[in-house]
């Protein structure tokens, strides 16, 4: 069988398949369907310093080959995660990456500092790209200066693997990726959701309480593959690709375009065992094409 392991900074993954933040809960929700220990790792829901109630219902709208969401970072705060969730999941046999969000660089740093003592958390993913919060989030991820301010502050406080999740809602995602790399990020993950909107014409109202939301699912995949390819050509740090991956073939697109690892997001809602299927299908592909190490095909385009 092909060797599938890859490295993201000092983080060693047994295979390149991760889950996307906000689509896989804390892993345990999927325990009846997924052997968590088979995953390269999973990224837990966006975590902030204090608990957040998120946006008002409705927060979701189905769209062609995708969906809009406007959850707005509902979570119980980093303290609750450390005290109540982490102890339950820390021995799941897979890397746990915490997605970190905040309204100011100091918020991000405070969350990172709280997570530092946890042996089982070897990486965080900085969410500078959430389109559904009024403060922070995407505001940091749409300018080089904003991205640099958060990444440099967290880099000083966090010496384990630092991944920065990028927004596609920019003119040139490559320059934001370069800014993150220059400030010491170990990796960039892309893409977060694309800003979108849908209208209920019968009721003459927006479908979401927030009017706009983030588009995910197969509808965004070609955009995501293109951005991963552009960024992977421009930076030296490993890129993590995500956006509409539903099967092994989709994941391989990202790997060939330059991603060292991938995240499965919205597909978890359609098939709770999507991650297992993606891993199986990557293995089958490697066998069929006599690939002995997945790294042979990473970035071949």
């Amino acid at each position: 069988m092909a060797r599938l392991s890859v490295n993201i900074g000092s983080l060693h993954l047994k295979n390149p398949v991760l889950t996307a933040s906000g689509t896989f809960g804390y892993g345990e929700e999927f325990a009846d369907f997924v052997d968590l220990s088979r995953l390269g790792g999973f990224v837990v829901k966006g975590t902030t310093l204090h608990s957040r109630e998120g946006n008002d219902y409705p927060r979701m709208a189905e769209t062609p080959s995708g969906m809009l969401n406007a959850v707005g970072l509902q979570n119980k705060g980093v303290g609750y995660f450390i005290d109540n969730i982490y102890p339950r999941i820390k021995d799941c046999g897979s890397e746990i990456i915490v997605n970190v969000s905040g309204a100011s660089p100091a918020d991000y740093v405070a969350v990172a500092e709280r997570l530092t003592p946890l042996q089982g958390i070897r990486a965080i993913e900085l969410n500078i790209s959430c389109p559904n919060v009024k403060q922070g989030g995407m505001a940091f991820g749409t300018t080089c200066a904003g991205a640099a301010s958060v990444v440099s502050a967290v880099r000083r406080a966090w010496n384990k693997t630092l991944i920065v999740k990028l927004s596609p809602n920019v003119t040139d995602i490559v320059e934001i990726a370069r800014a993150a790399e220059d400030e010491g990020a170990d990796s960039v993950s892309l893409i977060n959701t694309l800003m979108g909107m849908a209208v209920d014409v019968e009721r003459r109202r927006p479908m979401l309480s927030t009017i706009t939301g983030g588009l995910s699912g197969p509808a965004v995949r070609p955009v995501a593959v293109r951005m991963v390819w552009q960024v992977a050509k421009a930076v030296k740090i490993p890129v993590i690709g995500l956006g509409g991956i539903t099967c092994g073939r989709d994941a391989l697109e990202f790997l060939m375009a330059g991603a060292t690892a991938v995240q499965i997001g919205t597909a978890n809602f359609l098939d709770p065992a999507a991650t297992m299927r993606v891993i199986d299908e990557i293995e089958e592909y490697c066998t069929r094409h006599k690939i002995s190490d997945i790294r042979e095909i990473i970035g071949i385009i």
Binding site: E29, Y57, R59, M60, N69, Q74
Partner: peptide, 16 residues
């Protein structure tokens, strides 16, 4: 309520 995942992962179907 409208929902996506059905198992508490997406947080879309919330009720106050």
């Amino acid at each position: 309520n409208m929902m996506a995942c059905g198992i508490g992962a997406c947080l879309c179907c919330v009720e106050k």
